[in-house]
């Protein structure tokens, strides 16, 4: 359900989504770290494929999002990675659509950035201490932030479109709760696994305050 289909949202919501996504992608590309591109491609491919494994939940069906994980591992690069993956999902699978691409990307990328800024410092501490439990926990929280954030943003986009979608909020809550549990467990397990086999993939992500990053990018 993370993919809102074409023809549901109102024009102002669509335009806002497109504008914000464009700005975020432009910012992410400006401070692009080429060393992390292969990693971004791999995660984008995972995200692209993960949407196919959907399980029925309530009146709808849900699939893994992995946006919390992407935020943790990619930082800002998660935004263009998600945009590309969402575009391909729209073209190949018919999930979402080209007009709603901006809103859908925003709904998924913002929680990714949130988990990057909130969880990465904790994750780095856990990595340094090599604390398995803390690593797993930080992954879990990132996964939970990803799902909860996306659910909230999808609700927001629907409600901003029209009050008739208020009921949708309740349904999204019901379908997202089991997803939240599963996603946080899986993200925790993946973070634990990556920390064991390739800790350097997680280590480099030190989020700085936005202003500091800005001046760094212009240097």
């Amino acid at each position: 359900m993370a993919h809102i289909p074409e023809g549901v949202l109102s024009a102002p919501v669509l335009i806002t989504g497109a504008l914000v996504t464009t700005a975020a992608v432009a910012y992410a590309i400006r401070k692009l770290d080429y060393e992390r591109l292969p990693q971004a491609a791999v995660l984008a491919a995972c995200f692209f494929v993960a949407s196919l494994v959907a399980v029925p939940a309530g009146p709808s069906s849900v699939h893994l999002l992995l946006n919390g994980l992407m935020g943790l591992m990619l930082g800002w690069l998660a935004v263009p990675a998600l945009l590309v993956a969402l575009l391909l999902q729209a073209v190949f699978f018919g999930f979402g659509g080209l007009l709603v691409l901006g809103v859908n990307c925003l709904n998924i990328a913002l929680p990714a950035l949130l988990s990057y800024y909130l969880v990465s410092p904790w994750l780095n501490k856990a990595l340094l201490a090599n604390n398995r439990r803390q690593l797993f926990m930080s992954g879990m929280v990132a996964g939970a932030i990803g799902v909860a954030g996306t659910g909230a943003l999808v609700c927001l986009a629907l409600v901003l479109t029209g009050p008739q979608y208020l009921a949708a909020g309740k349904i999204i809550l019901v379908t997202y709760l089991p997803l939240l549990v599963v996603e946080s467990l899986i993200t925790g397990a993946i973070v634990g696994f990556v920390a064991k086999v390739a800790p350097e993939l997680l280590q480099r992500q030190l989020p700085q305050p936005l202003v500091a990053e800005e001046s760094h990018a212009t240097n």
Partner: peptide, 23 residues
């Protein structure tokens, strides 16, 4: 290493695939 890891993820995704799609 990272490519290998990702391939593993993707493959596990494909293998467990179409339970159903989402549309």
């Amino acid at each position: 290493k990272c490519l290998l890891l990702g391939l593993l993820f993707s493959l596990s995704g494909i293998c467990s695939m179409p339970v159903s799609a989402h549309l």
